[in-house]
Design a protein around this nucleic acid. Sequence first.
DNA 1: ATTCAAATTGTAACCGGTTACATTTATGAA
DNA 2: TTCATAAATGTAACCGGTTACAATTTGAAT
Lengths: 334, 334
Amino acid sequence: MSGKVGSIRDVAKETGLSIATVSRVVNGAKNVTPKTRDRVMDACKKLDYLPNPAAKALSTRKTKTVAAIIPTIEHSVFAKFISALEQSLEDGGYSLVLAISHADEEDELKAARKLLGMGAEAFILSGDAHSPELLDLFKRRNVPFIVTSVWNPTRDYPSIGYNNFMLAANAVKFIASKGHRDIAVLHGPLLMNDRTRMRREGALSLQSDRLELTFVESSLDVAGGKKAIREVLEHNGKITAALCFSDVLALGVYMGLKGTGRKIPKDLSVMGFDNIDWAEAVEPPLTTIELPDRKIAAEVASQIIALLEYGRPIGSVELFGKIIERNSVSDVTV
Amino acid sequence: MSGKVGSIRDVAKETGLSIATVSRVVNGAKNVTPKTRDRVMDACKKLDYLPNPAAKALSTRKTKTVAAIIPTIEHSVFAKFISALEQSLEDGGYSLVLAISHADEEDELKAARKLLGMGAEAFILSGDAHSPELLDLFKRRNVPFIVTSVWNPTRDYPSIGYNNFMLAANAVKFIASKGHRDIAVLHGPLLMNDRTRMRREGALSLQSDRLELTFVESSLDVAGGKKAIREVLEHNGKITAALCFSDVLALGVYMGLKGTGRKIPKDLSVMGFDNIDWAEAVEPPLTTIELPDRKIAAEVASQIIALLEYGRPIGSVELFGKIIERNSVSDVTV
DNA sequence: ATTCAAATTGTAACCGGTTACATTTATGAA
DNA sequence: TTCATAAATGTAACCGGTTACAATTTGAAT
């Protein structure tokens, strides 16, 4: 399709200079006369010259491209993360290429092969469950990668994220501190989602004879939360609070209560996870945990760039969530 | 970083064959002896060989990469679109590279330059407002592109999407058919968003002495819808229905009504746009317009591939929205 | 066994950049 | 003016694939 596009030799011919000189000015080398620089720049403009990326990548062996593989882009947490990542990478002169794994290790592996085949220089993975084959592939080819969303210092590769176990434990503690003794914990699918699993374990670690936790798994959407809260309330009338491992589930709880006569937070306290953009606008405003997704993205980008540009090794870093207290969880009314 | 990776000449050496033959088997040419094929494949596996994409792109002048520039990824409509696009392109052997324009023509132009510099062979743009410089750049370099989300057969470049003017007009007609005469129309920022502008005009075209439309602009999020509905209801008590050009605004309306004593749909009918995944789960279930975003993505992908592979020219295509009637708009109670 | 076309494999040029090294030009001190 | 040195520019090899064309092998027919 694309018609003839000017090459560096065309520019050289146009200016009467050599391709080496053209290359120098295009790459901003300092040792060129201002006069020649201008001459070349004019010719570039005139010929509409853009360096051929393939040629450049071939001779420098650098594509300035990093890959991210995420389970889905259709959840705002990931969308926000990707958006921030793209921004940070861009600022550092790198491009982001994206693939979706659908939370499937096989798909992730296939995506990684493809992205490698596109020249990705480093990888950003999500979560803590990856096929051994993928890890092996990275090791054999010496491809740097970071795992995000989770923080797990026990692995031999770097992870940047939060401690899901702690986050959930802290949320439970917060609710318990309001006097709640019977708490429903709503979460999305456990299968292939170690983030959710870690949160569940964190909550579970606080279970005791003074604190009864009822776990309900549902699809990770509003309909799931709605269905889940209705079911659990029907079977267990003592529950006074619902902890949702995702704000969309919390919205489901809001909707599930409509028409039941129960009010939030008088009859049921609800707490979310993520601090999604509408968490404050909902009625009553949702108490939730703000996750530092943009910060993770920035940290990931800066570490990857530091590695790729200066060989500085990547270290794991833990980032912390913050409870945003609004009006959806109240002291238990005796 | 990456350690030595095998090149095609290494594989040739390993097998004792020539690089041409290796290239043939790697690319699945038919005229190779099965025996040689196996020999090469084994060596590839053994040496962990992956063809260098830059070299391949350089000699074939094909990157198998298409670019999409979208205003934001943080709205589910775009996220869904991108997800579907990635899928369809992938199935056709192409990769998607993504950039975010923040609904800014300058950013869009910059992104396009960068993506061109990454070797994108075709572009997918969103909406109908683009800098002339960008259009000119594409024309000069003969880069194929499609505009999506909108359908506008008057332009000299192809667009695949829906007719926003008609969509909004139909929505207004639908609400009016239930007997409503005073309708609030809530929409996001008009600035830099021709989709919203076209919808507004479509609604406006139905304004008459029998049909009073009150337009309210707000930020495109739940908080915006909430604030907007409260304001408009305060100033105009006759309003019996709210048409929201986005489901998130509709959710804002739901929230805005809480505590005011007004009920949906008894006191206020509300209709959305998008049929977002939770539209059905909300209480009462939201009547809205389903937009064929996945279908657009599939259509866009298949046309782009047909062009890139077989030179088949791209044609504009109009896709239609569909009103999904649930329980949030009712006949006006006199 | 010989011949010849068809099938397989090899050789080498080319894609469009970068860069080490060689060459030319500019600068300034003697 | 002359020469030493530094700065600017040029030459050509190289990155790792693809592919036209040449060379070789295979196999069927005579």
